[in-house]
Design a protein around this nucleic acid. Sequence first.
DNA 1: TTATTACTTAAAGTTAACTCTAAGTCAAGC
DNA 2: GCTTGACTTAGAGTTAACTTTAAGTAATAA
Lengths: 142, 142
Amino acid sequence: MKTYSITEVAEYFNMTPHTLRYYDKEGLMPSIERSSGGKRVFKESDIEALKVIECLKSSGMPIKEIKHFIEWCSEGDSTLQQRYDMFLERKASVEAQMEELKRTMEVIEYKCLYYQTALDSGTEAVHKNTKIKIHPLTNLYK
Amino acid sequence: MKTYSITEVAEYFNMTPHTLRYYDKEGLMPSIERSSGGKRVFKESDIEALKVIECLKSSGMPIKEIKHFIEWCSEGDSTLQQRYDMFLERKASVEAQMEELKRTMEVIEYKCLYYQTALDSGTEAVHKNTKIKIHPLTNLYK
DNA sequence: TTATTACTTAAAGTTAACTCTAAGTCAAGC
DNA sequence: GCTTGACTTAGAGTTAACTTTAAGTAATAA
């Protein structure tokens, strides 16, 4: 079976070998074997596990929680429900993040127009009259 | 003109007075005035500024860079172009974040199906045969 | 054979964004 | 007049996720 060095894997995932050792130290990679000289030897299954770790990370999951998932994986079929529930939670979390980014984008797009208009007329004062005057604590566009 | 105490503003933005003082200390709120007793007095314009700060923060902008924007605002019309460019950059950044979240979501949805199937048959082994075998370093679904 | 390079470890340092602590001030209610 | 609670400050502490350092080992190239 083909195996990979820490540097090969690091390059592939666009991280440093340091980071991979850090993940290992934090218990994210329990199945990695060592060579006779004590070096880490990455199998295909370790690379697949890293792909899932990357996904969980970019969903905003902290490393300590990812560790729990990795532990569940080692425990086998008895933890299938926990793992399923975890991915459902991740789905909800990513959906919420997408919604927040959408709202943020709306403000940013408004500001782009705002500054375009200001630049056209050479001064921000052009917006002085068009400003909607309502109670500031109800005017939250976020 | 109606003004607000630090606690009122903190409650409105769902943060602590501590955090508002921290923002002030970091130079994010240069226009806040003080009462005779030295307490911060928030005007409507300060609350509007905080809304923009919240937007920039949720777009992923670090506080030190937000400070630059706040400084540009105080400098007047000579910085209109910088501010416009900054919001264009924010727009590109948020678009990239949305793309990344989409890719993450695809993996999560695949995993939800994966665990649903496994739960149905009671074991993860059901996926052993359906696994696509290609070179692991080209099989990156992120 | 020697130099270089990649690897190993444990542990300390970094950065951002708070978050808390300590010590003190001030205004309102009883 | 005194207590209570919200405010003030400077500065130390926290947390996550690295990132760097120091000291040493192992394999490869000239």
